[in-house]
């Protein structure tokens, strides 16, 4: 298969970027999208041109490192799945493919297609945990957790932290990401003691870092490789309201 690629090139955070055209030929339909970029980079290296910088690691859809917008869709056309799970057979032979990084104000571009998502770590650092010292945990079966709640917690906890939700959102909102962590821990009895302070602190950091708000367009859910449901955003709103009321009631 042959393709024309229009790829975002940007030397660093400060310089302006632009789309640059590359033609690539004789690609097997069984090549993954990222392997196709590997091949392009080998070709560029052979021509003494600078290879295209892009991020990837596990290449099986679980680490959340890859972060490309393809033809305007976060993670490309084959949902649900991360870019590393996208194969060239999903494209028409001879197609033009536009490749950009996740464009989100809070994810500055480092170089070409590589972005800085450290802000997602800072949201978790604000309170996305249960304080449990190693050595102090009680016997695991001492607190039963209803299966329904455990299953909901698992659905929320499946988030891979890629940031596609914010990239797809017209408001650049990270509410799906934040709601997944808040919901995961709020569904479990172990998360209860820190439930109110957790949601308040995480939302505060999320807002301070410049992410937008949710206006129910559900683009986040449509592109999420882990199929996180937008209903967790409703859960986040409820948790937040509950915590604010508790705080104003002086609890």
């Amino acid at each position: 298969m042959n393709f024309r690629l229009r790829i975002w090139r940007q030397p660093n955070r400060k310089s302006p970027g632009k789309l640059v055209d590359y033609d690539i030929r004789d690609i097997s339909p069984n090549t993954s999208f990222l392997e196709m970029l590997d091949i392009l980079n080998e070709t560029l290296l052979g021509r003494d041109e600078e290879p295209i910088a892009f991020d990837s690691d596990c290449r099986e859809g679980i680490c959340g490192t890859c972060s490309l917008t393809i033809n305007g869709e976060a993670h490309g056309p084959d949902h649900p799945g991360a870019v590393c799970e996208l194969y060239m057979r999903k494209f028409r032979d001879g197609a033009t493919i536009i490749v950009e990084p996740f464009h989100v104000g809070s994810f500055p571009i480092v170089k070409d297609l590589v972005i800085d998502r450290s802000v997602l770590d800072r949201i978790v650092q604000a309170g996305g945990f249960i304080s449990a010292r190693a050595g102090s945990a009680p016997e695991a079966n001492s607190i039963p957790v209803p299966k329904h709640n455990a299953d909901l917690a698992m659905e929320a906890a499946a988030c891979i932290g890629c940031g596609a939700c914010a990239a797809a959102c017209p408001n650049g909102s990270a509410m799906l990401f934040t709601s997944a962590k808040v919901s995961h821990l709020a569904f479990l009895p172990q998360g209860d003691p820190e439930r109110a302070s957790r949601v308040l602190k995480m939302v505060q950091v999320m807002d301070a870092e410049g992410f937008g708000n949710c206006t129910n367009t559900y683009e986040c859910e449509a592109v999420c490789p882990a199929e996180i449901s937008a209903s967790f955003i409703a859960k986040l709103n409820r948790e937040y309201a509950r915590a604010v009321l508790q705080r104003s009631a002086g609890e």
Binding site: F129, I130, A132, A134, G135, S136, A137, P138, A140, I143, P144, V145, P146, K147, A150, D151, A153, M154, A157, H184, L185, L188, Q190, G191
Partner: peptide
């Protein structure tokens, strides 16, 4: 330790 941290292990209907 993992249960205390909130790791959502699979559970039976009994909890």
């Amino acid at each position: 330790q993992c249960v205390a941290q909130g790791v959502p292990f699979a559970r039976e209907y009994s909890g």
